[in-house]
Design a protein around this nucleic acid. Structure first.
Lengths: 107, 107
DNA sequence: CAGATATTTTAATAATTGTTTAACAGTGAA
DNA sequence: TTCACTGTTAAACAATTATTAAAATATCTG
């Protein structure tokens, strides 16, 4: 089980509109990710500000990056989100996961 | 669907160790809830500090309270957690919810 | 009513977080 | 090598958040 300090860190990383926006973009983008500058443009945020937020997200383990030429591509790492959601459903949904998983259809 | 500002608010409310601790206690306690003073004692936090955190949690809609004599009982409101987890799985788990719902067993 | 208990509010302060601007570092192309 | 491009870092500042101590409110008990 994920320890609570790591959960707090992940929650804090997502608890800011720009960072949540970044993460959502990266999830939608898939494994190839998106270049930093393109994210900045999409969200209307200055590169410096964005770089600051990237640091928070990657420090929490939610995103990673790879350099490609002079571009830096960021992409989502699902593991931490996975663990975070698991922690919330286990500890914050009253034992029975269904309490906080309304839309899941089990075919 | 929950709007992203409400999600950010809920995430921020839980992104602090004392508040996450409060919420976990309340989830475990069930509908009758726990008196403020008992929570303060359980977590080793001063009543004033706790009162401050209660405000953040209830403002995010995650907890509610009822007065009983001179005690104030707090209890979890699962709806917001529910919506938050739903938002995360829909927007932050790459479309397929399973990506971030590892432990769910569909019998 | 007076005193004790339970909690909140206020004000002050400390700590953390977010934004901006300017300077810096790495990469690729002429 | 020199220039343009992409992104990060550093420093300064503003804004927000967390903690503390003291005062205030509200309820119960004698």
């Amino acid at each position: 089980m994920m320890e609570s300090t790591r959960v707090v860190k992940a929650l804090a990383a997502l608890a800011q509109s720009t960072r949540l926006g970044v993460y959502r973009l990266l999830v939608a983008a898939g494994p190839e990710g998106i270049a930093a500058g393109q994210i900045a443009e999409s969200l209307g945020v200055s590169p410096a500000t964005l770089s600051f937020h990237f640091k928070t997200l990657s420090h929490a383990g939610l995103i990673e990056s790879r350099q490609e030429g002079r571009f830096v591509f960021y992409f989502a790492n699902f593991e931490v989100m996975n663990d975070m959601v698991a922690y919330l459903t286990e500890n914050c949904c009253g034992g029975n996961a269904e309490t906080c998983r309304p839309a899941t259809k089990c075919k």
